[in-house]
Design a protein around this nucleic acid. Structure first.
Length: 447
RNA sequence: GUCCCCAUCGUCUAGCCCGGUUAGGACAUAAGAUUUUCAUUCUUACGACCAGGGUUCGAAUCCCUGUGGGGACGCCA
């Protein structure tokens, strides 16, 4: 759908936002959410999303750490318009390559008498005036920055507050969307912008993500805190992204699971929440399940194969067999972590008999007895749903029971479990011979 | 310690700006219905306006105080 008004609006957009992480070797969920909100705002307004790397620490193996970050962002679908790999007219996009620029800007401050040396470092002289920050989320916040602060260390390297502001000026950043932990730092930044006679960008501080349990904000060590975890566990990135959108933002219409295009359309500062949000891995898991079940079969198939191989399941060369198993099990899949257990018995006769499952099955009568009665049916009756069900019904009726009374025992014999794929399709996929063998083996083991 | 921000079910939140709702939705939990097993789905239940003062005929909504939670005060970013 082409909307001419929207097209013109986006062409005229001067919005430039940036995500400026320092490569630490981790991609924290809070950082990811900050990147996401910047990206959403850029896409909503038709502006530019800049990725700038704050790599001032030379000690680290930058490439490897950078890869984690870039992989994570690509995985989440957060493509940047300017920055590493893609370039742009405001480079370089690595702070480690901008030393000359920082010296130049330091000279400006010196010439204005706003910078002075102390203990070998360079300090910025604050105005000491009360300032009002007009934050797009928190409204007007009054505060005074009282202490001069260092902008160059005694080893000659520039400090975060300084480089952050200088880069934002150089890159013509129009909106700064960042974590609420920077709210009180903003006074330092405004002081700096004003000292350079540069326009202060529009700020939008977003709430922090708190640990699901205990005190404080989410830290690297908390479970579920790293994007890498979700990549490894084969979460669907769309699900993670969708959940993250709703942590600290709300579309005000009760919608939760929705396509990213819809979120981009609805995203605005008005919907951003002021209070910090606690991370809920259960809700996140629910989103993942929903997305998994709605996934196009071809995509699910690829994911399933990857997970099966990872789990050491030897998939047969018969692609039709594998496909039919995955197709049958997709609606029962809640996550890819436990997926191997869901399908393992389709690919190996060496599957475990689950104790908990067994006790459930035993509540419906002695499974060994039931299997003995079922065996002749499996052996002789045509191996299709209608015939098997009819024969099972007849058997049950003769004993004053229902056919479903026999389901759990059969399922358990064939899969070692009490739940999983639909029973008859499962039997048909496995085939008569295998089912028979498994029933015999189960009778033996259960006696 | 100083400063800043926040405050609705266990959790994420709508409602608040512009006072009048049986305070709505989602996750989780429980029960029931549907189902040819297991699931799904559907229905229902459970469950909240932090406290105290104002203002008002009337306060979740406006004001103040307290309490609680979070954050910032680094030659970290």
């Amino acid at each position: 759908m082409f909307n001419i008004a929207e097209y013109i609006f986006k062409k005229m957009s001067k919005v430039r936002v940036r995500f400026a992480p320092s490569p630490t070797g981790f991609f924290h969920i809070g950082s990811a959410r900050t990147a996401l909100f910047n990206w959403l705002y850029a896409r909503h307004t038709g502006g530019m999303f800049v990725l700038r790397i704050e790599d001032t620490d030379d000690e680290r193996n930058r490439q490897e750490y950078l890869d984690v970050l870039e992989d994570g962002m690509r995985w989440l679908g957060l493509d940047w318009d300017e920055g590493p790999e893609v370039g742009g007219g405001y480079g370089p996009y690595f702070q480690s390559q901008r030393a000359d620029i920082y010296r130049k800007y330091l000279d400006i401050l010196r010439s204005k008498g706003r910078a002075y040396d102390k203990d070998g470092a360079v300090f910025f002289k604050v105005s000491g005036k009360k300032q009002v920050l007009h934050d797009a989320v928190y409204g007007d916040v009054e505060r005074t920055e009282e202490k001069d602060f260092p902008i160059f260390r005694s080893n000659g390297t520039p400090v975060f507050h300084f480089v952050n502001v200088v880069d934002d000026i150089c890159m013509e950043i129009s909106h700064v969307i960042r974590g609420q932990d920077h709210l009180t730092n903003t006074n330092k930044h405004i002081e700096l912008f004003e000292a350079f006679d540069a326009p202060v960008p529009q700020y939008a501080h977003i709430p922090l993500i708190l640990k699901s349990q205990g005190q404080g904000k989410m830290s690297k060590r908390d479970r579920g805190a790293l994007i890498e975890e979700y990549q490894q566990k084969l979460f669907l990135p769309e699900a993670v992204r969708n959940y993250l959108c709703l942590l600290g933002w709300n579309p005000k219409n009760d919608a939760e699971i929705m396509p990213i295009e819809e979120i981009i359309r609805l995203f605005d500062f008005r919907g951003i929440i002021k209070s910090n949000a606690r991370f809920d891995e259960r809700k996140m898991a629910h989103f993942n399940t929903e997305y998994l079940r709605a996934l196009a079969p071809g995509k699910f198939d690829a994911l399933a194969r990857r997970r099966a191989q990872e789990a050491g399941i030897a998939l047969p060369s018969d692609a039709k067999y594998v496909d039919s198993v995955f197709e049958l099990c997709q609606p029962k899949t809640s996550n890819m972590e436990t997926f191997p257990a869901l399908v393992g018995y389709f690919f190996s006769d060496d599957y475990a008999f689950d104790d908990v499952a067994l006790s459930k099955v035993q509540k419906k009568g002695d499974p060994a007895e039931r299997l003995k009665l079922v065996r002749p049916i499996i052996e002789k009756v045509p191996f299709d749903h209608d015939s098997l069900y009819a024969a099972l019904s007849e058997l049950a009726e003769g004993r004053g029971e229902k056919p479903t009374d026999y389901f759990p025992a059969i399922r358990f014999a064939v899969s070692g479990q009490s739940g999983g794929a639909d029973l008859f399709p499962m039997l048909e996929i496995l085939g008569r011979e295998k089912v028979l063998g498994r029933i015999d083996r189960a009778i033996e083991r259960l006696q």
